[in-house]
């Protein structure tokens, strides 16, 4: 039945699948918990999703360009530890730019190895995942870091501030999402990222500087991590050495849930936002229903696998197929 509808509806319904699933989830959870759809709860889910969300924006662009970025988790640890540690040493007005530059350098290493030297992005970023974690431990000597004067610093506005009752992380996430959406859909750069991800060879044959485009996508990804680190550091006012551990998978989950193709060339920033929110609401809903922390992971990945399967099935017109 479902398959026939998918077939009949063609790409239209397949494209909206994530939205449909999202609405279904919201209905089910709000029926099962009366606290789920309260403004307070919704706002707190939005706020909590902002860090994953900002990172997912950058990773979406990398993935559309035909690559992966698994290093964002430990890059977040690095950036947060750095900005928090420097905050008390040199003040926030210097700590932020230094951290952003340092994080961009890590992005540039990814970009150089993958874009210029054309190494496999899975291997490079997986390697960077543990290399950067090591770097964090060397830097901090294994000590967790804190900001001493938590009330007196303007650094607090990024994680704890709000404008017109809307929490700052939500505003930052929303603004960045709109900016990147506009970049990807309306600028020459966005078009080139889609082209390079869709067919790198044909892009080179069309005179597009493929290496430079891929390099830039990793810089964007690193920039997003830096912004996420500012929000995280500002909210917690301290950082553990491994604070970003596991974030790379959550980020990737949101990107996949948003329907961005891991093969590159297809995907959307706005749908990644939906993926991020859906992930956050599923986890929140399960907590409200009294499920322990680890069930989130079972449910999340089950949802993702079913989503990917339906997506593929809709494309080839049958649920099981011996030929792709």
């Amino acid at each position: 039945m479902l398959l026939n509808r998918l077939k009949a509806g063609g790409p239209a319904i397949a494209k909206q699948g994530i939205l449909v699933a999202f609405i279904l989830f919201m209905i089910v959870f709000s029926l099962m918990s009366d606290r789920f759809l309260t403004p307070d709860n919704v706002m707190s889910v939005f706020r909590q999703s902002a860090i994953i969300g900002v990172m997912a924006l950058g990773v979406t662009i990398v993935v559309i360009g035909g690559n992966l970025d698994l290093s964002v988790g430990s890059m977040l640890s690095f950036a947060t530890v750095l900005v928090v540690d420097l905050h008390d040493k040199v003040g926030p007005e210097l700590a932020i730019p230094i951290m952003v530059l340092a994080t961009l350098c890590l992005g540039a290493i990814n970009g150089f190895l993958i874009g210029i030297l054309r190494l496999n992005s899975l291997i490079v970023t997986l390697g960077m995942l543990s290399a950067i974690q090591g770097l964090v431990l060397i830097y901090s000597g294994g000590q967790n870091v804190d900001i001493v004067d938590q009330r007196g610093t303007w650094f607090a506005i990024f994680g704890r501030g709000s404008i017109l009752g809307i929490a700052a992380p939500i505003i930052i996430f929303g603004l960045l999402a709109i900016i990147f959406h506009v970049i990807m859909t309306t600028t020459p750069f966005g078009r080139k990222v889609y082209a390079v991800g869709g067919n790198p060879t044909a892009s080179v044959f069309s005179g597009i500087p493929r290496s430079r485009i891929v390099f830039t996508t990793y810089l964007i990804s690193a920039l997003c991590v830096a912004v996420a680190a500012i929000i995280l550091g500002s909210r917690v006012m301290g950082s553990q050495n491994n604070v970003g551990q596991g974030y790379e998978l959550q980020v990737l989950a949101a990107v996949i849930l948003g329907g961005t193709s891991l093969l590159g060339g297809a995907g959307s920033i706005l749908k990644t936002v939906l993926g991020v929110l859906m992930l956050a609401f599923i986890q929140n809903g399960l907590i409200l229903m009294g499920q322990p922390y680890y069930t989130q992971w079972l449910v999340t990945w089950a949802v993702i696998i079913v989503a990917v399967w339906l997506d593929v099935a809709a494309k080839r017109g049958r649920l099981f197929s011996p030929i792709a």
Binding site: R191, Y194, N199, A202, S206, I208, G265
Partner: peptide, 17 residues
């Protein structure tokens, strides 16, 4: 393999360079 980005639309392929 070399001429077209198959997943892109007609116009975007044509104006790519």
């Amino acid at each position: 393999e070399q001429g077209l980005v198959l997943s892109m639309n007609c116009r975007d392929n044509m104006t790519l360079p």
